[in-house]
Every structure is written in structure tokens, then in C-alpha cells.
Design a protein around this nucleic acid. Sequence first.
DNA 1: TTGACAAGTTAACACTGTTAAGTATAATAG
DNA 2: CTATTATACTTAACAGTGTTAACTTGTCAA
Lengths: 232, 232
Amino acid sequence: MAKQSAPPFKRAAAKSPTLQSEGTRSERIQAKSTTRRQKQKAALRRAILTAAEELFVEHGYENFSLRQVAEAIGYSPTTIYLHFSDKDELLFHVAVEGFKNFGEALQAGYDSETDPVARLTAIGRAYFEFGLAHPVHYRLMFMQRGEFFLRPAPDDCEAPIDSFTILIRTLEEGIAAGKIKPGDVADYANLVWMTIHGIVSLAISMPYFADKTYAENTYTHYSEMLKRYLCI
Amino acid sequence: MAKQSAPPFKRAAAKSPTLQSEGTRSERIQAKSTTRRQKQKAALRRAILTAAEELFVEHGYENFSLRQVAEAIGYSPTTIYLHFSDKDELLFHVAVEGFKNFGEALQAGYDSETDPVARLTAIGRAYFEFGLAHPVHYRLMFMQRGEFFLRPAPDDCEAPIDSFTILIRTLEEGIAAGKIKPGDVADYANLVWMTIHGIVSLAISMPYFADKTYAENTYTHYSEMLKRYLCI
DNA sequence: TTGACAAGTTAACACTGTTAAGTATAATAG
DNA sequence: CTATTATACTTAACAGTGTTAACTTGTCAA
């Protein structure tokens, strides 16, 4: 009678009295099962993302397809839709990864120096070299899908460093240190960003300007021109 | 017997002794017929081109399709292939039209002034305003299909003015006039072109920079910065 | 054991560029 | 005047795309 009054799961708990996590065995199994399946789900999601990243870089924006991704990970194309709402969201994740690396590169440039003007130079260099080193990502981020830049990062990604803020901060520091002419930092930042983008984007997408030494040459001129305009 | 010895076409010629173009009547009919059909063919080709132009601007690079063009002119999609080898060639013609207008705009800027520095400013303005006014063409020409810039113009199009040469000439004039610092004009030209492209391209394709007054502001700064760097 | 839910697949739709084959019509040759 | 040939164009099809709906299968809970 006592046995009957005792709920069945208590019996199961009595069967394994070793020190374990809370709950009955079946509860523990259930918990582990769900976490296992969550892990599997997350793993598949990551597999999709890494395959997408790879294939995107390999084939470029125009020739990147969901069916390729599906084939690469050994799943049917529609499986991707269980993890991403559409191709756009998947591309956005690739872009966010790019923004993350881009922001880190700029931050590293900032951190590599202490003087504001030196920092500005370093940031510019980092920008320039990121573009030339990762043209497919760069094109996606700033040429093909520029609207991604404003879209907030998805929940499953850490928000990338705000690259633009790094530039603004550097300019502010320069003005505060009396090394950059006082002025609207937003204007300055726009000027810097847009002009350097011109050099990078043409260098990576127009054969006419594709020669690396040309780009390097132009960047040297540009750097000097900018310094003369901004610095006191 | 004389009649028999005379070739039949001579008889036809005798039938219409009025002053006309060379040959027999049948020859004349034939000639007119072929020219008429050539005209029809050329008309259809032009119809394809204008429809393509229109639909391209309307729908943009990504959503422009041959089937749309076919529907617009009331022909089957495959008819286009009788006049253009593929979609790419059609797009190229659209781009060439863009290059033509672009070159003319720059040339007009050049012609509007006599002083080399004023010419440089005018050319820059023309560049800037062309980009903002024709973003879809600009993107095609300098962002999406940059390789078109180097491809020689097709036979049925007059070659567009070489925009880059206008810039180079202006810089050379400036140096010759002692108003621009001596230096490698190719380097100067690259610097000017690439930086101004940055402003234009971001203004027309990144919402972050899309604000017109922002672009105008940045361009003002840019213009001043360039003048200080290049001019004596 | 049944029923619900999850994961994944298949089939299909509406597109795309592009090619091959077929069909009228007009021009030409005998 | 008829037979043939070339021209202009279309239809059908292929291989590919993103995307949706319906279906199957396996796992878990009651």
C-alpha cells in the first residue's frame, strides 16, 4: 500500500541512489535527451553557417546557392529553412561574421597605437588591408548588401564592434589632443570612410584599378592628403 | 530572234524607262526589300535595347530579366538571342549607354571652364551628380560589372568618351599651368577617381550614408581636401 | 499503446538563362 | 509558276534558382 501510494518515479529514484543531478532517472534522461537534441540542432545550424561561409567565399555573391549549401552538409535544401527563415538571413549571418572581423581589425589598429593621429593611420591601414584580404566579404558588406550594416545583429551572434564608432572616437581624441582641426567629427568620419571605401572597392572590383601596386600607391597619396587636411 | 537574244531582265528594264536607281525592277524590289527588312531588324534591336534600358532602371540589376524584356516588346524570350548573344551582351549595351552619358557629362564639366583647377572641380561635380542622378547605371558600370569599363564598345555603338582621359588631361593642364603640383598624373587621377567613387557609391548604395545632405557635406569637404593636396 | 511533436524529406511552383528543334512566311532559283 | 532555301520567330525543354506545402519518420509523454 505504501508502495502504491508512492508515485512510481520515486521508485525509480530509489533504484539509483548515487549522487547525481536533480530529479528521477527518467527526468534526467529526458533532460539530457533534450539538451542532446538541442546540441545536435545547434551543431547542424553551425554546420550550415560554416558551409555557407565557405561556399560564399568560394563562389561569390552571385553564384552562391542554398542548394549548394545543402549538398555540402548532406541535407535536403529545405532543411536549411528549419534553421534560417530564408537565403537572406543566411547571407546576413555571413555578413555579420564579416562585420565582426572587420570591427576587430579596426579595433586592433586602434589598439596598436596611442597617439590619435597614429591611430587614425593604423585604422585606415586596417580598413584597406581588410578589404584587399577579404574582397568577397567586403563586397557583400559594403557594396552588394549595404543595408546589412544597419540591421541589428541576430540573437545567436554577438554584436560586432561598431566600426564607425572607433573612427569617431579616434577623431574626437585627436581634436581633444589638439592634433586634429576642430570640426564636425561626423563629417570627418564620413569623409574618411567614404573616400577610403572608394579606393578599396575599386581595387577589388574594377580590373582597371585592380593592380595592387596602383592601389598601394593611391593609398599612400590618400593617407598623406587626409593627414594634411585633418591634422593641425 | 532579237527578242530572244536579249536577256529577260533587259526587257524588264525597258518596261520602266523612268529615271531610277540602277538595275532592273526586280533588282530594285529586291534591294528595297532587303533594306526594309534590315530596317525592321534594326528597329526590333533598338526596341529590345530601349525596353532593356527601361526595365533595367526600373527593376535594378538583380531583378532584371530577359523574359521581362521579351514580354515588354511582345516577342518570345528567345527572339532576343537573335539580336544579342546573351544577357551579358544586352547588359553591356546598357552599360555602354551609361558610359556614353557619363563621359559626356564629364566632358561638359570640362568644357564649362577654362582654368584647369576650375575644370577639375567641374568634372568632380559632374561625376558626383551623375552618380546620384543615375544610381542604377552607376552601380552597373562601377560596382557590379566593373569589367565592362575595359571592354571595347560593340560595333553598333559609338565608343563613349574616355572619361579617364578627360581627368588626366585636366591634371596635365593644371601642372603645365603651374597650378597643380608636379607629380605622376596617373597617380593623381587614380586618387581623384577612387576617392570620389567612394563618396558616390556609398551615397547610392548604403542607407547609412544615403542622406543627401550628408553626401553633399562630405563632397564639400572632399573637394576642399583635394584642392589643398593637389593645388599649389 | 496512443497521440503529439520534432526533424527531415519529397514534390511542386514560379521563376531564371539558354539551347535545340520546329514552323510558318518570304525570297529566290529553275 | 513551282520548288527550294533562307529568314524570323516560336514552342518545348533543360538545368538551375528560392520557396512552400504536404508527407514521412522517429522520439518522447501520458
